[in-house]
Design a protein around this nucleic acid. Structure first.
Lengths: 234, 234
DNA sequence: GTAAATTTGTTATTTCAATAACAAGTATTA
DNA sequence: TAATACTTGTTATTGAAATAACAAATTTAC
């Protein structure tokens, strides 16, 4: 359960007004809440772009096909408080989610493997998040090295250690062929990254001071296939 | 809880021996178990390729960085039984997971959006699963239509309905730009697919007789960023 | 042949996530 | 002004997933 003792306050700028906001940084947020916060923020930014200033929990819920209670609970966990019968101030909420998810000075990301998938990811992130930018790509193929995709320069695999330290990169994305996964993960860990996101089907292991997230498209597709096949039983 | 009344038997071929295997198809398997079964199978195939015939629960567990109990529980849920002190027969287990995950005649998959990500997925699946094959790709760009990537032909978006029905496609993967997501999802549902895997950040909704899985790379990366930032608190 | 060490299969417990329930406060309506 | 409807914030309950615990069976060691 959420420990109310570990709370403190910060200030969030709402246009020309400074608002005192209670946040909770002592305790880690639940996995699923973090995921949803990321999604809320993206859609809140769209709402803001349309000139909307406030939003109700049930509106957020509708966008994401979840329940209003879940939304309110997530927002409660980050210590934000809306206005009764007026909803949540969109800009304040965006700012607070930013406080929670981003580091003040952002984090830099490296991607290893500039094949189709790697390039898709680079393209996908291009200009989307100012606090989380892909700062370098690595590949072993000589004809890719030195090139740039969407402003991201491609370095040789051997330079991982040097570049990661030089650019203060804290997160690595792995999208190399399975044979190279183990070596890639080791190189990133050696270089000091704190988080790894792997898009390969090969399970990898990392020391416990590195956060690892693995996603495998084949597993996802097989899962969809299973539940599609059995849809009438769900 | 697992309902033992709904069980029946099937036969699994273990080289030249026919083995009676208890399976459970009446009840749907837990989400996470399905995911792990897919992963087990892939690594079991590798083990088989190396000439290994049996495997212990703790060996499977080590490969996937989970506990042996979890492995045994998953295997229990599909009704397979190993041999005490000998472990699980790899080929039998592969065959049974196949019975569970695959349809007898397989399922066909369409991918909508043949950009970087779409092509990455096509390439990724090329020749990997005989029971789950990408049978068609769709795109709106005239210069892509008619081309082939890894043996997958690209059709115009407008032909979704026709081709999906013609080829008896049951699963759709969406990798189009956000503006086209809604229309794409509708077209696939209209055409009769039973499962959709969406790689776009835009939440979509489908009727309840269609299984939907959404995955968003930005959310994953922001989650990794959050936990990497707070790694010492985990 | 007996004891010790393994390893499976299953039940019980714990942990984590989602949902339900509801008090309290605010706006609207009559 | 009183009654109604709405919306938040929080606690309580339910449900799902993971882990722990352990009986039973088999091999190995002595």
């Amino acid at each position: 359960m959420y420990d109310n003792k570990n709370e403190y306050f910060c200030f969030s700028t709402n246009r020309n007004r400074l608002t005192k906001v209670k946040i909770n940084t002592m305790n880690i947020l639940p996995d699923k809440t973090v995921e949803r916060l990321s999604q809320y923020r993206r859609n809140l930014l769209i709402c803001d772009g349309k000139g909307k200033t406030h939003i109700f929990s049930h509106e957020i819920a509708n966008i994401h096909h979840i329940t209003p209670v879940q939304v309110r609970r997530d927002i409660m966990l980050i210590g934000y408080t809306g206005t009764l019968r007026k909803g949540y101030n969109i800009l304040e909420l965006i700012a607070l989610i930013g406080e929670i998810l981003d580091k003040e000075d952002g984090q830099r990301v490296a991607i290893v493997g500039a094949g189709n998938l790697g390039r898709a990811i680079i393209q996908y992130f291009h200009n989307r998040r100012d606090k989380l930018s892909i700062s370098a790509a690595f590949d072993s193929s000589p004809d890719k090295i030195g090139q740039e995709y969407d402003g991201v320069k491609i370095y040789p695999i051997e330079d991982i250690d040097k570049i990661v330290k030089e650019k203060n990169i804290t997160i690595g994305i792995i999208s190399v062929p399975v044979v190279a996964v183990k070596a890639t993960a080791s190189a990133l860990v050696e270089a000091g990254v704190k988080g790894i996101l792997s898009y390969t089907p090969r399970p990898i292991d990392v020391p416990e001071n590195v956060y690892l997230e693995e996603y495998d498209m084949i597993t996802s597709l097989e899962k969809v296939a299973y539940f599609a096949k059995n849809i009438e039983k769900i």
